[in-house]
């Protein structure tokens, strides 16, 4: 590859060098995870920015190329494909942000400084604006016409929260032993599954959510 990008890895400490092809692969994985996960995953801002740069660099090169150059159409085709992944990724995040705006802002409030935020700065602004408009909409439309003593609105009570118990399909990337799939209840014992690389499962999202975040499994 002609271009190399420095990117922080997930822990945010070590700096590793990835080729553009690897960044693209990671972005595609993040896209599918985001698509199938019920809650909002951590924003992969680095990957998105790196790909945007790659695209605009490539577009510069294309504009300098001779007219009718054979490779231009191929580069265009690739850019279109990458742009589809990028926008589908960002769009599925926006959908979730709109759905869970109040909930996400609550989480953001109690987040400790050393924890990474799930929202990128732009997404955070969007969530705040959206939440504010929604609240004022509810007030203007209905609440102000209500009797005075029931005019209060508790964001905690109306917040839509992700249902983490939804079922998902997943593929295992790294051997993981002893995943607690079902907690012990009165009539059933606890259930533990050993996951082998390459296995595919269907199960509830909650037990595997940390594994999705760490990359040990991918949602499919």
């Amino acid at each position: 590859m002609s271009t190399l990008e420095d990117l922080k890895d997930e822990s945010g400490e070590e700096v590793e060098t990835m080729t553009a092809a690897e960044v693209l692969r990671k972005l595609e994985e993040a896209w599918l995870n985001e698509k199938f996960a019920e809650d909002l995953l951590e924003a992969k801002t680095d990957l998105v920015e790196c790909m945007m740069e790659q695209i605009s660099e490539m577009e510069d090169n294309i504009s300098r190329a001779k007219k009718g150059d054979f490779k231009v159409s191929i580069h265009r085709l690739e850019i279109d494909r990458i742009r589809y992944v990028l926008s589908s990724y960002l769009r599925s995040r926006l959908l979730k942000i709109e759905k869970f705006a109040t909930h996400l802002l609550e989480e953001e409030k109690v987040r400790k400084d050393d924890e990474p935020s799930k929202l990128s700065p732009e997404e955070f602004t969007f969530a705040k604006d959206y939440d504010k408009s929604l609240e004022s909409h509810l007030r203007n439309l209905a609440l102000r016409h209500m009797p005075a003593h029931i005019q209060s609105l508790d964001p905690k009570q109306i917040a839509v929260r992700p249902n983490l118990d939804k079922y998902v399909f997943l593929r295992v990337n790294e051997d993981t032993e002893g995943v607690l799939v079902e907690e012990e209840t009165l009539d059933t014992g606890e259930e533990i599954v050993d996951m082998k690389r390459g296995d595919q499962h269907i199960m509830r999202y909650r037990p595997v959510a940390p594994l999705v975040a760490s990359g040990a499994v991918s949602l499919i």
Binding site: F169, V181, E182, E191, V193, G198, D199, Q200, H201, I202, M203, R204, I220
Partner: peptide, 10 residues
């Protein structure tokens, strides 16, 4: 409560 789905395609 869960199932393995090996060899099924996407």
């Amino acid at each position: 409560t869960h199932a393995k789905l090996n060899h099924l395609t996407l």
